[in-house]
């Protein structure tokens, strides 16, 4: 949940979003749509599906490899948010005890299958979302959402929040670093000192907020934020969109994992 997030993660993800890999260069609309279809395909599988889920790892792995996103970064972020779904899912083996699968003498209950399925779903859905943001960036995603029909006002609000967020977090981080340099024992500031630091921050925030708003007015701000940057849906974007959705359809409806397994275990599909 939100407790484990640090401000530094914001900067990392934002920086990744400015990359120039082949995935970054795709139209954000194509990536947004493909990711959404991917998540729909994953969560619409049967709740006991385990084997059928595994081939879906193809998509995040390709994006990870082509998009120059560090594997560790994605893995760590998934580990931070996984606990909620995993803790809710851990009750499945206790409740659903009917044996669904036999491997020789050993019976595996439906609850264990659905629990493993939930864990795989967490990795797939969260991984795909993180990769989308890491290869696209929030501003481009906002533009994509607007072109796909999201209200302009709402997109403006998201982009405004995004901009202010970095200003506020950066400001406080700098001030805190200045404090720590002057307090080598690393103690938390006393409340008097704390109040002074806050006063400093307040003055700077005042100055910055004035500058930003005045700058907006000076550039002819009339209440409407105009989004620039032309999106062009080129051939490779169509190829990306159509190809991946076709692959998801095959993985979702033809169950290649079962065919592959039959081929391997029995020699006949």
């Amino acid at each position: 949940m939100s407790g484990g997030h640090s401000a530094f993660d914001l900067g990392t993800l934002d920086r990744l979003g400015r990359g120039t890999s082949p995935i970054h260069r795709l139209d954000p609309r194509a990536k947004l749509l493909v990711t959404f279809v991917f998540i729909l395909a994953v969560v619409s599988l049967d709740k006991h599906a385990v084997g059928d889920l595994l081939p879906f790892f193809l998509f995040p792995m390709i994006i990870l490899a082509r998009g120059e996103v560090p594997f560790r970064f994605v893995a760590r972020k998934i580990a931070v948010v996984a606990p909620f779904a995993v803790l809710v899912g851990i009750f499945n083996p206790l409740v659903d005890r009917e044996v669904m699968l036999r491997i020789g003498e050993v019976g595996i209950s439906g609850g264990w299958l659905s629990f493993v399925s939930i864990v795989l779903r967490v990795v797939l859905t969260i991984g795909a979302l993180l990769l989308l943001v890491a290869t696209t960036g929030v501003p481009a995603l906002g533009r994509a959402a607007e072109r796909l029909g999201a209200p302009r006002l709402f997109v403006t609000q998201i982009l405004g929040l995004y901009r202010y967020l970095f200003l506020l977090v950066d400001e406080s981080q700098r001030t805190l670093r200045a404090y720590r340099l002057r307090a080598p024992d690393g103690k938390t500031p006393s409340w008097r000192l704390f109040a002074r630091i806050l006063g400093q921050l307040l003055l700077r925030a005042v100055a910055r907020a004035r500058r930003v708003y005045d700058a907006m007015l000076a550039r002819g701000f009339d209440g409407e934020v105009r989004l620039i940057g032309d999106l062009r849906f080129a051939g490779r974007d169509w190829a990306f969109l159509v190809l991946w959705i076709a692959i998801f359809a095959v993985l979702r409806f033809l169950h290649p994992a079962r065919l592959l397994g039959d081929l391997l275990l029995r020699g006949t599909p």
Binding site: D46, G51, D52, L53, L101, I103, G110, A257, G261, L264
Partner: peptide, 12 residues
């Protein structure tokens, strides 16, 4: 459930 088979797991 056809999804929960050994071959499904191995193939996956």
């Amino acid at each position: 459930n056809a999804g929960a088979t050994v071959s499904g797991l191995v193939g996956g």
